[in-house]
Amino acid sequence: MNIAFDMMGGDFAPLEAVKGLQIYLSGTSRPATIFCIGDEAQLKPLFDEYKLSGNSNLRLIHAPEIIGYHEPPTRALKEKPNSSISVGFGLLSKGMVDAFISAGNTGAMLVATMYTIKTIDGVSRPTIPTIVPKLNGATGLLLDVGLNVDCKPEHLNHFAILGSQYAQHILNIENPRVGLLNVGEEEGKGNQLCKETYPLLKENTKINFAGNIEGRDVFQDKADVIVCDGFTGNVILKLAESVYDVALNRNVHDDEYFNRFHYEQYGGTPVLGVAKPVVIGHGISNDKAFMNMISTAEKMIETNLCANIQQSFSA
């Protein structure tokens, strides 16, 4: 198992990336081979400091350029072929690694994914999900959360299949229930998109459709996978992040439920619907977040998630 790791992506890289790598290696007896992509001049001293130099599971790949957060993605990818993101996708597209993870420029990651990694046959549009912590302690999934702000009914229908596959193979939820985010529970409610999506989900034999889900039920246990357009999903995601910030500002610390909202618990979000595993991390990723990004990529490889998605769409 080979994973390409962008060591330069993130506000606190490469230090936190190196520390996350150390945590990962110390916590597993059978680590994957990690292709560490970045500026050797910055990485080698850190590898020495954290006693990673000489580790047989690490391959240092020199990439002297970095795509900044405010650079236009498409232009940056063309003008910086030796950036850590460009090099990482090059390794993935050539089959030298099985997955690629980065907390770098999100736009560049998404553009590079679309241009270098093929969309799985039958998938109308790839999507990005987010984890939903439920009040009963369970975990759910919400998608799309920003990649597709304008959607058609068939897109949401495909998101339901993609989310179900991820929930089943990565979150270990057997026969996950799918809900359509709407303004009411009754069939026929909502805007035109929801009205036209409902019958598609109802007739989709590849999912376990549970009907409409209202906003007040997002954190309840009425569905395991909630589908919506990326505009709505992103608003919910940012609102949830703000609620977590409010909790901290109100001195609500060490709360078992609110702590589950912290990005570091999940590391990153996968791009679902493409042929190979790509995981995008938060720009402020710390060592624990980077460690969890590696673990997510590892699990996607181990469970053959992309192959299972492909089989689901070809059946």
Rank of each mutant, 00 (worst) to 15 (best):
G146M: 04
L60E: 08
P72R: 01
S86V: 11
V87S: 03
S84L: 03
G90I: 04
G68W: 00
F47T: 13
N55E: 04
K78N: 14
P129D: 00
L141V: 15
G88S: 10
E154T: 14
T74L: 09
N105T: 08
N105V: 07
M114Y: 11
L58K: 10
K44V: 15
N105Y: 05
L156W: 04
L141Q: 07
V149W: 01
G137D: 02
L60I: 13
N57K: 12
L58Q: 06
S83T: 12
Q42K: 15
G54W: 02
S164T: 12
L52Y: 04
L147V: 08
S102Y: 05
T106H: 02
M96A: 11
N148Q: 06
V111K: 03
A63L: 03
C151M: 05
D98E: 14
L58N: 10
V149Y: 02
M114F: 14
I117P: 11
T127M: 00
R125H: 12
K118D: 14
H158E: 11
A63F: 03
Y69P: 09
G107N: 02
V97I: 12
S56C: 03
A108V: 05
G95Y: 07
K44T: 15
D150I: 01
K94E: 15
H70V: 10
R125D: 05
L77M: 13
D121S: 12
K134Y: 07
E65D: 15
G137P: 13
H155R: 05
A108H: 08
S86N: 10
P129F: 00
K94Y: 08
N148L: 02
P81T: 06
F159C: 08
D48K: 15
L43V: 06
S83I: 12
T130N: 07
K51C: 06
L142N: 09
N157L: 01
G95R: 07
I61F: 12
A138K: 15
S102W: 03
M96C: 00
L156M: 07
P153V: 00
H70T: 13
F159A: 05
G104I: 03
Y69H: 10
S93N: 08
I85N: 04
C151E: 03
P64R: 01
L142V: 12
A108K: 06
I128A: 03
V87M: 02
T113P: 13
N136W: 07
P64A: 00
M114I: 08
G95A: 05
Q42F: 13
S164D: 02
F89Q: 10
S56Y: 00
G140M: 01
T116I: 00
G54M: 03
F100C: 12
F47A: 09
S86K: 09
